[in-house]
Design a protein around this nucleic acid. Structure first.
Lengths: 318, 318
DNA sequence: CTGAAAGCGCTAACAC
DNA sequence: GTGTTAGCGCTTTCAG
């Protein structure tokens, strides 16, 4: 299909080295020969073989991405991934996609298949012990995103506290008397507590909690309970759950935010498309991507360890 | 970092070939030596270099994906992509992601960077002439998805008519008297016409059209006009537009589907999360993926050219 | 200016 | 059973 350097050399009667010089636009080649080779290359569609080049140079333009893309949050996933891809490509890198799998042998196969092709692997999911052990064995450098439990590797953490704290603070400033936390994730609680601690004790609203996993269905199912709780504001662990609640509210003609203010977490695109639009806390997508790129480009000796704040986005439900 | 075959050979005092035999589990190696090499390999973390292997074997486990992932339909994109990834990985292939770019030189860089790494590129977007010319020059085989304008390549088309025809047919069977098409895409019209043609002339409902681009905002904006049109059923070019309409309807307490039945197109995940859930027409994702995989695995000499039907999914809005 | 040649890490045909 | 060797296609050092 495509010709090789060697073939061009034979065709032109010159050496591989000279052909290579021309093709890489290096100096010290007789203009006429340069011309000849250029023509030959064009006519025969010379396209360098990246596999060979990467092998020789021991470098690569590919970055593995290991994530679990669970069925429940594809919107969030794509939102982040899309930005990451754009960000990588702007520097000439391309993501290779793999799905995290609990099964060790499946995971090993992925890493084996990537060894020598990619240099870094961005990891956004998985079991700590397994991953650490695995990456020790494969010639791939992991960049862990949003993990608190891993050390001795590049680590980009997400600080959920800041955005949630700001979200709850606006509720308090708005004079809400009873704030309900619907969900059970520890990291969400820290943000709520931070907002309460920042408020003078005598001005603090009441605080309730309904523990639940953050699905759309749970949001719907718990809606009656939430509405009966007496809370005038509710923070959901996830936008999905908030959307479930809003779905129920719409069905039952409950006015949002008049009856109860609603804030979610994740900045799910669907939250922008409903009425009223969902207030939420967004991930630090851009800052994270910049950090990733910086690691890939600079290959720092020392492990990078940074934390990035989330951000409150006020829309119509609060 | 990782040892090479050669190093293992030196360490063991055996030849590369023998080491290679052991590592590939081939016969004809003395058990003791096999044992020794296995131990050495394990101890030194031998991981084969895929770049080298692929170069030697002139084959690759990577499949390029060139798509444009526009900002307006990330949900649909991810839905399809997710399935494709799972499907590819089940056979040991991994997608390499690239974003289609109008700019020829950007595109050339991508293809150049992939040459020799990937063998096939799945193309879901782009300008016909440009792509055809480009793929002629690069040692990459394109698999075009959902294009009617390309020949002489692998071509997997999507038949939008079938699903839309079925959707409209149910509306007619439900006794709708006036069906409105909100949108302007030609391929959508064929499906509507097919349903009308399949209906005895005296039983055909009235047919209206409001041309518009399929955005969420347009769905909202056109809602009053649609409601005043007298139609008792509306088909939108996209789920986004349908969602916009439903958003307006929810805000104004308009009963769906009692007042007007609504059907969208694309099977946007958001359509399942709203109340009432959106009836829609879904893409033939699975069949498409199987066809892609089949091409990649079998590398057929002849160009594959197939068409896949869309499918009506009835939910609550119709 | 130009070319010979080594070598990236791996595979496999072909000896012995 | 085992080793030698010739590549895959490219880069680059070193000699002319």
């Amino acid at each position: 299909m495509s010709v090789t350097l060697k073939q061009l050399a034979e065709m032109s009667g010159l050496s591989i080295r000279t052909v290579n010089r021309v093709l890489k636009n290096q100096a010290h080649v007789h203009p006429e020969k340069r011309e000849l080779i250029m023509r030959l290359a064009r006519d025969h569609n010379y396209i360098p073989n990246m596999a060979a080049r990467n092998l020789r140079l021991n470098c690569s333009k590919f970055v593995g991405i290991l994530s679990n893309l669970d069925q429940h949050t594809p919107e969030i996933y794509i939102q982040k991934m899309q930005n990451l891809e754009i960000c990588l490509k702007s520097k000439g890198y391309y993501p290779i996609i793999g799905k995290y799998d609990m099964n060790q042998s499946v995971l090993e196969k992925i890493l084996a298949d990537w060894s020598g092709i990619a240099e870094f692997v961005i990891v956004t999911a998985g079991n700590k012990a397994l991953l650490c052990e695995l990456f020790q064995r494969y010639p791939l450098t992991p960049i862990y995103i949003d993990r608190d439990d891993i050390e001795d590797s590049h680590l980009l953490r997400i600080d959920r506290t800041t955005g949630i704290r700001d979200a709850i603070s606006t509720l308090i400033q708005d004079g809400k008397k009873c704030i309900l936390h619907c969900g059970q994730q520890e990291n969400r609680k820290y943000g709520i507590e931070a907002a309460f601690l920042a408020t003078p004790a005598n001005k603090r609203p009441e605080k309730l909690q309904i523990p639940a996993w953050g699905s759309f269905e749970n949001g719907r199912k718990l809606a009656p309970k939430i509405l009966k709780s007496g809370a005038d504001a509710v923070f959901f662990d996830t936008d999905r759950m908030a959307l479930g609640f809003l779905n129920y509210a719409a069905e039952h003609k409950i006015k949002i935010p008049e009856k109860i203010a609603v804030i979610g977490f994740d900045d799910d695109p669907a939250g922008r498309q409903i009425y009223p639009a969902l207030s939420t806390v967004a991930h630090p997508v851009d800052a994270l991507n910049q950090a990733i790129l910086s690691i890939i480009e600079n290959k720092p000796e020392k492990n990078v360890n940074m934390s990035f704040p989330t951000r409150f986005i006020r829309r119509q439900t609060s």
